[in-house]
Each structure stands twice: as C-alpha cells, then as structure tokens.
Amino acid sequence: MSVTAEPAVMTETAETQGSGPDAPIRPESRDAKRFHRYVMFAIAVALVLLPFGLYPIFVMKVLCFALFGLAFNLLLGYGGLLSFGHAAFFGVAGYVSAHAAKVWGLNPEFAILGGVAAAAALGLCIGALAIRRQGIYFAMITLALAQMVYFFSLQAKFTGGEDGIQGVPRGRLFGVIDLQDDRVLYVLVAVIFMAGLLMIYRIIHSPFGQVLKAIRDNEPRAVSLGYRVNRYKLAVFVLSAALAGLAGGTKAIVFQLASLTDVHWSMSGEVILITLVGGMGAIFGPIAGAFVIVAMESYLAPFGAWVTIIQGAVFVVCVLLFRDGVVGVLSRLLKRPL
C-alpha cells in the first residue's frame, strides 16, 4: 500500500492549513534541526526536574510507555506500517528480562539487553511474514501473530502462565549500583529513554531513514529506483521491535514483574492509542501521548471497565476530530515540525 496512515495525516494537514507559509512541514530543514535540538534539551531538563514534582515510579512508567510509543511510531510514521501486534515485542522482552534477572541472576543491564535481543529476533520472524502484505492486511497479520505469541506465553512454563514472573530483582547495575532505591533506578530509566529517543532521531535522519520515507511516500517509485524495499521494511520492523523490547525489558525491571497483560492485544491497542493521541508521525508525539494515557489510566484505575470505555472513546474522538494529535496541533501552532 503506497497510501499509508501517515501521508493521510499529511494530506489532512495540507487541507486544513491551505497553502500558507506554514503548509509544507519539512523535517529536513536546518531550522527544524536546530529547533529539535532545543526540544531535546528541554526534554533532558524535564527529565531532571520531573521526579521532584511527580512520583518517580509514575514518571518511569510514562518513560517506558513513551519509549514503546516512539518505537511503534518509528514503524508507523516513518515506515508507514501500522502494526497491531507490538505487545508481542514489549511483553516477550519483559519475560526474557525478568527471567534473566530472576532465574539466571544476570545484572539488570544484561537482563534488559537479553530482552532487546529476544524482541529483535521475534521481530525478524514476525516482520518477515507481515511485510508480505500491505496496509490493512499488515495490521491483521501482526495482530494474529502477536496473538499466537500470547497463547504461547499463556502455555509456556518459563512465563509463569496466568501468574507471570513476579518478584523480579532489580539487582545491581554493572554489579555495583543498587537499584532498589527508586531515585537511583530513575536515573537509569531516564538514561535509557534518552538514549532510545536519540537513537530513533538518528535513524529517522540517516540516509536509511530517508529511503524509508521515500518508500512510505511512493513505494513503486522506490522500487523503480532500485531499492530493495522489503529489506528496508524488515530492517525498520526489527529496529522498532528491538526498541519496543528495550521499553518492555526496562518496565519488567522497574515493576519487578512480567505478566500476560504486556503481551495481550489490548497492550498493542494501548501503544497505538498513545501514538494516536500524541500525534502519528510526529517525532515527539508518543511522549506527550504516553503522559496523557498513563495519567488517565492511573486516575481511572479504580473505575474498572470505565478505563476501556474511555480508551475506546478517545480512539473514536481522535480518529474523527483530532487526527494530528497533541503534538501535531502543537507543531501547527508553533509552525515547526515536532
């Protein structure tokens, strides 16, 4: 499918804006890059300040989901592929990290890296199958394969089935730094998040990222230019899966738990919601989305089924009225790409 979600977003934007000076947003411009540097700096400052105002554990949760969203958005916004199965990578990485830390007694950094590796390997398998179809079929295939992973996690021994893996030790970073203190752990999570964000930013602006954009915007043209389109798609799929795994593995260490919730399809829905609310295709979109959604869910948690209903309503409202998301709107107000 050459018409993907993101160009649709772009067309929308062009229509609502008309052809003014603010119509074409070109992320490549030098001005934009400088602006992005300021935004990165602001995010870094915010990471330092946030734990003074909010519970570190809440901020860590937001950061894990934000990184998950960034990984998902790399695939959707820049690869033009809507995966409905990203919970598989997030959840499996969580299981592997938790297992590595608890059963094998690995240091947290190796446990998380193990999760990343598992997610990347799984991404290679699922991606190789899913990229054989486009658009709507791609979404259905990723959903179905992720459901297979869910059933596997339900039955396999090492995942602990319905109970999950509980009481995962946070361990000592590099064998030295005790992570039991939330504030110490927070520093690690913030560093991982920032590293992930910078890496994604680098990927998008690399020659590889440019080819991805060319494929997304006009696949037949990219093929005729001699690009092996499927290799690029698979590569971005694996990268996205690995980064989702980084988020999932980190979350397992932070919450000392890996459970079926994280491999369930509703988790795949959640990361889509985070990205949709934040702004599909906006580089910083999922960060805002994660804040909104995680905050909303922690306020609504006591109301049970209402969480699902409100999530659903947010989906409907975003699709009908708010397709650019928070950051998309912000970007338009500032007349700068975000």
Binding site: V3, T4, L82, I136, T308, I309, Q311, G312, A313, V316
Partner: peptide
C-alpha cells in the same frame, strides 16, 4: 475519504467501548 487504517482504528475504539459497556 481517509486512509483505510483510520477505519480500523475507529472500529477498534468502538469494540473497546461496546465491550466495556457490557462488562460494566
């Protein structure tokens, strides 16, 4: 008139709403 994927996202939201209502 939009990309097909929006239809998938909207009906996914509907599914969540309907399921949530019945659960409630």
């Amino acid at each position: 008139k939009l990309d097909h994927l929006y239809g998938l996202l909207l009906t996914f939201g509907l599914a969540l709403i309907i399921q949530g209502m019945f659960r409630l």
